[in-house]
Simulated assay, not measured.
Amino acid sequence: MQQPIIDFDQDEVGDWRAILACGHRQHVRHNPPLVERPWVLSAEGRARFVGVVLVCKRCDEEGGDESLPSVNHG
């Protein structure tokens, strides 16, 4: 299910997670060469991604609320 990013936090080892509108969290690591997300390393970069829609696998598994609007960032 698609959910917009509303904020970010860090896990216990310092990796960044997107906080989704549904309340779930999803890692958005910058881990070269496997994953390139340099934007997550700065407050300005993370701010640009607030509102971007990600697929929340936990909502899909739990059958979350599909009435939430999708927010497109662009």
Rank of each mutant, 00 (worst) to 15 (best):
G14D: 08
P4D: 04
E66K: 13
C22K: 03
V53Q: 11
Q26Y: 04
S67H: 10
D65W: 04
P32T: 11
G74S: 12
V13Y: 14
I5P: 01
A43Q: 09
R37N: 15
P4Q: 10
R46I: 02
N72I: 13
C59Q: 00
G51S: 02
P32C: 07
Q26V: 13
D65E: 08
R37V: 00
V50S: 08
P69M: 00
G51K: 04
E62D: 13
C22G: 08
H73C: 10
D7R: 07
D7L: 05
G14V: 07
A18F: 04
G23W: 00
A47L: 01
V28C: 10
Q10W: 09
V55K: 06
H27R: 14
L20D: 05
E66R: 11
D9H: 13
R48F: 05
M1S: 09
D60N: 13
L41M: 11
N72S: 14
E66P: 02
Q3A: 11
G63L: 07
G23I: 06
E44Q: 09
R29Y: 10
A21R: 10
S67N: 14
R25P: 01
C22E: 03
G74W: 14
I19D: 00
M1W: 07
E44L: 05
S67L: 00
R29A: 15
D65Q: 01
D15N: 11
P4R: 11
Q2P: 15
E36L: 15
V40S: 09
P69Y: 00
I5S: 07
C22Y: 02
I6Q: 01
V50Y: 00
P38Q: 09
V53C: 13
G45Q: 00
N72F: 14
F8T: 02
G74H: 11
M1Y: 05
N31L: 14
E36Y: 13
A47W: 02
V71A: 07
V55Y: 08
H27C: 09
M1N: 01
W16C: 05
R48Q: 14
I5A: 01
E44A: 15
R17G: 04
E61N: 12
C56K: 02
D65C: 01
H27W: 14
L68C: 08
H27N: 13
G63I: 05
A43C: 01
A47V: 01
E66G: 08
